[in-house]
Every structure is written in C-alpha cells, then in structure tokens.
Design a binder for these strands. Structure first.
Lengths: 233, 233
DNA sequence: CTGCGAAGTTGACCTAAGTCAAGGTTGACG
DNA sequence: CGTCAACCTTGACTTAGGTCAACTTCGCAG
C-alpha cells in the first residue's frame, strides 16, 4: 500500500496506540484498494474475512429481511467497520456497499485477531472502539422506538447543522434523500412529507441544500437529548 | 461479599480469564446486594458509577424520551450490563430496574477501569463481551426496522421455544405481557391482537403459558433468519 | 437545446398500529 | 370466599405511515 496513506490509518484511535512492529505487520498483510460507487463490499451472512477501513469516499451499511432493505449506517473516512464480526470470527450481520468512489483498506481478519492477541494496546483500543459503536446503535434504537419520523428528521437536521454547517443554519445533505429516508426508517415519500410538515418550523429545502431559519422552534419540536443526539458521548 | 457467590462471577466469560489477584481486587471493591422488585438501579443520564452484574433475579433496561418509555432489554443471571458506559467513563444511556427480587453485584467503575488497564486478559474479555452486546443490539435494530410487529412476535415465540421449551412447543413467557409488548416495540393492546392473528398458525395462549402446535406454519409466517434470531452468533 | 432517465414530489388511498374506553380475568389478601 | 386491584382483552375509532400511480424537476448525454 502507498506509504502516504499510512499516517492517517495510524492516526485512527484504533491503531494509534499499538506497537510499531505490530502495526507494520498488519499493514503488510493489508490491501489498499479503490472501488467505484455502488459496489458491494460485503454481504450479510458471509464469514468475516476482512476488517475494512474507509480511507476516502463513503460506505453504506445496510441489511435485508422480508424483501425489504434498510440502511443501517453511513461510514465516513477515516473509520473502520464490522469490527465485531471480525473479532468474534462470525458472519457479517450487515452488508456494505460503496456510495462514492472509495479508497478502502482491507485487513485480513485472521491477522487482526492474531495481532489482537499479541498487542495489549490494540486490544484496549478495540474495547473503546466497540463501546463507541455499541452506544451509537443504542442511540439509533432509542430514536426509532421513542420518536416519530418527523422528530427523527428534525433531530437529524439539527445534528447535521452542528456538524456540517457549524450551526450557521445552512448545510448540504451528505447523501441523497432516499438514503436519508431509509436511514431514518421511513419511505422517500414520507420523508418528503416530513420536510413539508417542518416548513412552519423554518426548514427550507432546495434540492440537497437545507436552511434552518428558526432553530429555536425546530428544537421545540425535536426535543433533542444528548442521550440520543450527541454523537460524542 | 459472600464467598459462595464468587465462583459464579468468576465463571463469567468476562472474568474467567483475568489474573487471580486482579479478580480479588475487583471483588474486594465490590458490593453484593439484594434488591426488591421494581427498584431503580440506574437512571439514564447519570454518570456511570458502577458496573452491575446480575447474580440472581432479573433486570430490565429501559429508556425514556418524549414522555414515552421503551424496554430495551431484559438481563438475566449471570451477566453484566452497562459495560460500555463504565469503560468510556460516560453517562448511562439506559435506565435499569429490578423486575424480581435480585441479587446484584456492584463494582465501582473506577476499579473496573483501573483493572482494565492492568489486566490484559480482562481487556480482551471485555472486547468479546462488547462485541456480543453490539451484535445483540444490531439484531434488535434490524428486527424493528425490517419486520412487522406480528413477525417480531412470531420470531420471539420461536426463539423462546428453543430456549425455554427446548423445542417442545410449550413454555412460559419469561415476563408479563406489557413488558413483552414494550420489548417488541408495540402497545399491550396490539400485542393481544398480534396473539390473535397468530392463532391460525397454531399459537395457543393461556395466561403466561404458550403452546405452539404448528411450528412449521409459524415459521412460514415468521421467516426467521439467524442474522436476526440466532442469539449465539 | 433537446430529450431521457433517475430522483423527488404530490395526491388518493390503504393498512398497521396507537388510543381510548369498557369489560373481563386473575391473583393476593383480608 | 369475597373484594379489590392489577393486568389483560376487546371493540370502536384515530392516526402515522406505507403504497401506488401520476407528475415534476433536474442533471446530463447526445
């Protein structure tokens, strides 16, 4: 793999505390590849052969059942996904596909597990990574169980504004609306309608650009809570 | 704490590989207490002061938002809960209450974290424990997003039959119906109706006893998949 | 500029599930 | 053995959200 990409991988909290020789051994075994958009990387039910790290681009995690499909999460650079399946040497619970041209690091799961046994700092980093992922899903699950679709949308907009618009009230949706709809657990049609019901709360939509002109009102409706909406904790 | 309870704690996969002196240090700092039913142990949003281990009884994890409440999981002996919050030194994302008279081990989270730093085997056990919890929530989330409430109930019944009835088709519900309803993400009224729509598929309910007389038909409706319904993987 | 196709929107309609209000069961306790 | 209080069930009704089909918008290739 290209040495210019190494530092950003090394900088990941998952890798930055491990021993240099172990890191090198992992990278030695790894493949760095660039994939076109809409390419299936892993399929749920398959044994976990690789740990994946998104270096550039964007990856969608999704799941199937009952001839329905649901987007479970979007993975942005630089972060790893499907760590749990690799550690447990189990099958993937989710499928993954690229949503943009993406540069991705593939580390054979056997190597991940053997270095995990060898390197104590790596093992500890894994715990924290897993704890973070766990809490992310718990928050998603709480949102889905306790909120209406309009509330979920409102809170997502408020979060995006904090993350991408720096609280200015104007930002771009990071993905298309059908994906957003699936992520929020609704149909594209219903997302459209949800945007309309948010119009009186100062939500202006034009294509993929969003403007929030009355954040206070939106918050009254959304009732955000750090126990669901704060990605940090 | 009573020494007769030590072996079952030690036998937990979370604790069975760690060094003896570290285990003793943890237990030295821990409290073993028996609580009456319906007692609140932790409240979401509070800082994680203790790691909890259910030795006897039953604990419900639940969450609040929008003046609604949802049961997130039931914890049975012998297992630990809210590990992630303890490790990250963060606030609890869920509340917990006893659902039966319960014997519970409380380990101060500072001690957990310091032993985590000290004991490599303990750190590795934590990774696997977290990975298991992560995959549990992912499965719950998939079920909620991809299945109707009747399907969720049908699959839960099939699973209970495997776990408690050993596949005989007859077993007791492990908790009351309102709890089951909340766990499945529906109202008690709707659970009643769901049981009725399952009647033609050989589901007989009398109080808390369930008899499945046509498992094949039930499976046709439930369409179980190990990627959601197998608690082992 | 034009025309095509995908993505998004809208409206009409339908269905699953929630809500509310009675009843009915059951089980603990006097 | 009766009474009370949970818990559960049922029925009538409402509502959120899904479905289907038509239409619009927009980006883009020719």
């Amino acid at each position: 793999m290209r040495s210019s990409d190494l530092p950003q991988v090394r900088a990941l909290s998952l890798f930055n505390s491990m021993g240099e020789e172990n890191f090198e051994a992992l990278m030695q075994a790894a493949y760095l590849q660039t994939f076109p958009p809409q390419l299936d990387l892993v399929h749920e039910g398959d044994p976990a052969d690789f740990l994946y790290v998104v270096i550039e681009g964007c990856v969608e995690l999704y799941a199937h059942a009952n001839r329905r499909e649901a987007t479970m999460a979007m993975v942005h650079p630089v972060s790893a996904f499907i760590l749990a399946a690799v550690l447990k040497d189990a099958v993937y619970l989710m499928s993954a596909r690229t949503r943009a041209r993406s540069k991705i690091l593939l580390i054979p799961s056997e190597n991940v597990r053997s270095i995990f046994e060898l390197d104590d700092a790596f093992a500890r980093a894994m715990v924290l990574e897993m704890a973070g992922s766990y809490r992310y899903v718990i928050k998603e699950h709480k949102g889905l169980k306790l909120r209406s679709s309009v509330e979920r949308l409102a809170n997502t907009l408020l979060r995006q504004d904090r993350e991408f618009g720096n609280g200015t009230g104007e930002f771009e949706l990071p993905y298309d609306k059908r994906t957003l709809a699936s992520l929020l657990g609704m149909t594209p049609e219903n997302l459209s309608r949800a945007f309309n019901t948010l119009k009186p709360y100062g939500v202006e939509v034009s294509g993929t650009t969003i403007r929030l002109t009355d954040i206070k009102a939106l918050k009254t409706l959304a009732k955000p809570t750090p126990l669901i909406d704060d990605p940090k904790t």
